[in-house]
Write a protein that binds this DNA or RNA. Structure first.
Lengths: 337, 337
DNA sequence: CTGAAAGCGCTTACAG
DNA sequence: CTGAAAGCGCTTACAG
């Protein structure tokens, strides 16, 4: 790359100090210079195609106008949808976003956070993986501004924006009950993350409220690395035996997609014999042949709120804001054909 | 945020110059210091939780180890899939990625590029929108390292990694012909982008090769903003009239999804009366009830090659590399049910 | 061989 | 009021 034009170059050309050029181009303390001189400086800058070096400015001002974003996988539509919202909201405030994917791995997430902090990001938006509390605590100690999204740790007093997962699961299960289901199973990940625990809690509470069986055997957990065989086995167990389920709650979209793929190979009729509710919206089920329902997360609101909360935290000594958004229950009927 | 520990702090504690601390921590010119002293410096750095300030280093070295990525929309699976590959490849080389979405808008793309350059990114990976040639030319003049992905401008001698769009369309159409189609239509975007033109050219060439009608009226163009009504009208026109089509090529995944949605409402039978090939893989068609084929782009290869080419270009005075990858024709049968 | 100085490109507190 | 200097936190060419 060829050497760029600096403030010094402009200053030399116009015959003033670099300080004055800086003042003029940043529209600061305008009164200290005559309008004519200011215009000459501006013209020179334009002539020479001057562009600020943000790195130099950042070093001096201790501000990079950069947000670090850590999601589980940017290729996952949930993450990339959120990233897009954050990008737009950040851009409106002249912020730029560095993203990275933790793959639900606490060690990786720790490394990514370090890298982002080395780059002096002004703050972080994180979807923290399981077992990463210590990283969050460290951020608090270092007084790094950050906001958690999607997940959070109930024992830590941090900013976060997440779904009301208890309420959403509860709502989903009540939908199944209203539709006539009496034995409702749940498929979730074997994972410590609080938001998944909340979904189980909401599921259980809804069953109890309606005096339906809430046995342990109705809840199946599979490894988060999503082994096809595990999912098939879990669903198979729920559907066979003396008391097969007639309703099923998937705790995440990936589970639903893999689950539907398997259910399609079975003789069971959806929704007549098995009615389904899933968490998250997913494109993959766009053309599913049978009706089902899902909990739609307010991605836009989540991303916008998280970004705004972060920018506020960056701006001042912040209070802690904790938001649990309501999930929308969407009943999907098949595309006509 | 609390003040961070700097090299100076370490130097004071150990009683050496900051220069020496820098040398030791960067493992440079090791011989200039005794192993014992080096260890004392390292220990002090660890004790004090020293973390480098990359902004300061970047100002001095004129290198940020950052790649700027501009895609059309990070929320689009094609873009986010590519972003993920680039992230991983970049990370292996200690590079970080700033992403932004141009929304196929040349003006926005220009602004984003400027912002990225102001932040002194070491290079750019771009999926340039239509009418952005001048920006690309400017980058060449400024000798900014960059690689185009997915799209490129045939008249510009730039690095790029793209699909062999002509070949892919040709292959798709021949698939339809082999399956017995005799009147094959195409639905594409009204857009100047070369890669779309190439798809039309491949479509036309395949028809001509097999002496099938290649009339203008068989090619329908719709606005890239994807108005549902436009797409429906276009498909309706292709399917009615004296000579209805029996084969259809969609030039992009979004067109295919919208198209399938409409086709589902029609009495036409897929694939018996209408056989379909689409560009790009898309989750949305995961559960489509009828067989169809699509051109799968080698996303992984595209992202990895683009990143490597960029890193090479950053490293040295580069030669121009232009790569057209082959698309894979995938014949998809419905998930059983 | 090694220590200390210069300097990257900005911003802004401060002296005059 | 305004100009010139100091300094952000690093790296590395260079003097001794």
């Amino acid at each position: 790359m060829e050497r760029k034009v600096s403030l010094k170059d402009i200053a030399q050309k116009v015959g003033v100090s670099t300080a004055l050029v800086s003042y003029v181009l940043n529209n600061k303390r305008e009164n200290r210079v005559s309008p004519e001189l200011a215009q000459r400086i501006r013209d020179a800058a334009a002539d020479m195609n001057y562009r600020i070096n943000q790195v130099a400015r950042s070093l001096k001002t201790n501000k990079t106008n950069t947000i670090g974003l850590v999601v589980s996988d940017i290729a996952n539509p949930f993450s990339s949808g959120l990233a897009r919202i954050i990008e737009d909201e950040a851009e409106q405030h002249q912020y730029t976003v560095i993203f990275s994917s933790s793959d639900e791995n606490a060690r990786k997430s720790g490394k990514l956070i370090d890298t982002l902090l080395d780059r002096q990001v002004d703050g972080l938006i994180l979807a923290p993986p399981a077992f990463s509390e210590h990283q969050i605590i460290r951020l608090q100690q270092q007084q790094v501004p950050f906001v958690l999204v999607d997940r959070y740790f109930p024992d830590l007093k941090t900013n976060y924006v997440a779904l009301d997962n208890f309420g959403a699961a509860h709502k989903g299960v009540e939908h199944l009950i209203t539709a006539g289901c009496r034995r409702i199973g749940m498929l979730t990940y074997a994972n410590e993350l609080f938001h998944l625990q909340e979904r189980v809690r909401g599921y259980t509470a809804a069953l109890k409220k309606h005096k339906l069986p809430a046995k342990k055997s109705l809840i199946k957990e599979v490894d988060i690395r999503l082994q096809k065989a595990d999912i098939e086995k879990a669903i198979h167990q729920l559907l066979t035996g003396p008391e097969p389920i007639d309703g099923l709650l998937f705790a995440a979209n990936n589970l639903a997609v893999a689950g539907f793929r398997y259910i399609n190979t079975l003789p069971v009729k959806v929704p007549e014999a098995l009615r389904i509710v899933s968490f998250d919206e997913t494109e993959a089920l766009e053309f599913y042949h049978a009706p089902f329902a899902y909990i739609k997360q307010p991605l836009g609101e989540m991303g916008r709120l998280a970004t705004r909360m972060l920018l506020e935290a960056i701006g001042q000594r912040p209070a802690t804001t904790q938001i649990n958004l309501e999930g929308e229950l969407v009943v999907k009927t098949p595309n006509l054909r």
